[in-house]
Simulated scan of single mutants.
Amino acid sequence: MARPKKYIISLTDDELTKLKSIMHKKQVSKTVRSRCQIIIDVDEAHGRTLTHEQSAKTNCVCMATVTNTIKIFCEKGIDGISSLKRNVNSDNSKRKLDGRAEARIIEIACSPAPEGHSRWTLRLLEEQAKVALDVPVSKDTIGRALKKTNFDLTKMTTGASLQKKMPNL
């Protein structure tokens, strides 16, 4: 015998039209669209109701997404599923440098090393970045930005071009 449903969704006509209007906006992300479609799929008041498995399959999401969306809708309503809250630990919130700042750091690293030094170090780049950029940037952040471009500070030649792969012997 199947377990009884914990959350039962029965939309009013106003809620249904609001969900459909949210789905048809151009500036809405795919996540919000699929959340709205999931709620419409499992609505018991209007038309044919899909099971959670069927809704997951038609919306190309996993079962956990369906159950979490239904739970959020029951707890917070339409506003809960139509707003995306990023986790504090997500990559987008952690990012210190934007593309222009990264390009500026790479430009500094590709320039000749300062007098008295044979090559750039992360600490030298950190000092130079404090002067060039308005935002203070740590040497770890600079190292991550240079790692993305395969830039090697220990090489005598400067440039952010890809390194040649050596065959394994």
Rank of each mutant, 00 (worst) to 15 (best):
L153Y: 09
S55N: 14
R35H: 03
S111F: 03
K18Q: 08
V66E: 01
C62T: 11
C110I: 10
I40C: 10
D41N: 10
M156Q: 04
P112Y: 05
V135R: 14
R95G: 03
A101R: 08
R100P: 00
I9T: 09
Q128G: 00
Y7F: 15
A56I: 08
L169F: 13
T65S: 11
C74A: 11
F151C: 07
S21K: 13
R33I: 13
R123V: 05
C36M: 01
K76V: 01
T49S: 11
P136E: 14
V135E: 08
R35E: 07
R104K: 12
I39R: 12
N68I: 00
A129E: 06
S82P: 03
K85N: 05
S83H: 14
P167A: 14
D140I: 15
S93W: 06
V61T: 09
K96G: 06
L122Y: 05
E127K: 03
S118G: 03
S83R: 09
N89R: 09
A103K: 07
K26P: 08
F151Q: 00
R33N: 06
A45H: 13
D140L: 15
T149L: 11
Q27Y: 09
Q37H: 09
R48N: 12
A45M: 05
T49N: 06
K18C: 01
K5H: 10
T17A: 02
L133R: 11
K165G: 07
E127W: 00
P112A: 02
K18G: 02
T49P: 01
G143W: 04
E44K: 11
P114F: 03
N89T: 12
L122N: 04
I105T: 08
G116C: 02
K5A: 12
D140E: 05
I108S: 00
F73Q: 08
T31S: 13
S55T: 10
E53P: 00
H46I: 07
P167L: 15
K25A: 15
L16F: 11
K148F: 05
M23E: 12
A129H: 01
I106Y: 03
Q128K: 10
S138Q: 02
P4G: 02
E15V: 00
C60N: 13
K20F: 04
I105Y: 12
T141P: 00
L50V: 02
K164Q: 03
R144W: 03
V66M: 08
L169E: 10
H46N: 13
D152M: 05
K164A: 11
P136I: 15
L162C: 08
K165A: 14
D43L: 04
T51W: 04
I108H: 11
I9D: 02
S82F: 14
K94P: 00
D41A: 07
V32S: 07
S34K: 07
M23Q: 15
T149N: 06
K155H: 08
V88Y: 10
I78C: 09
A101Q: 15
A45Q: 07
I70M: 10
G77F: 12
I40R: 11
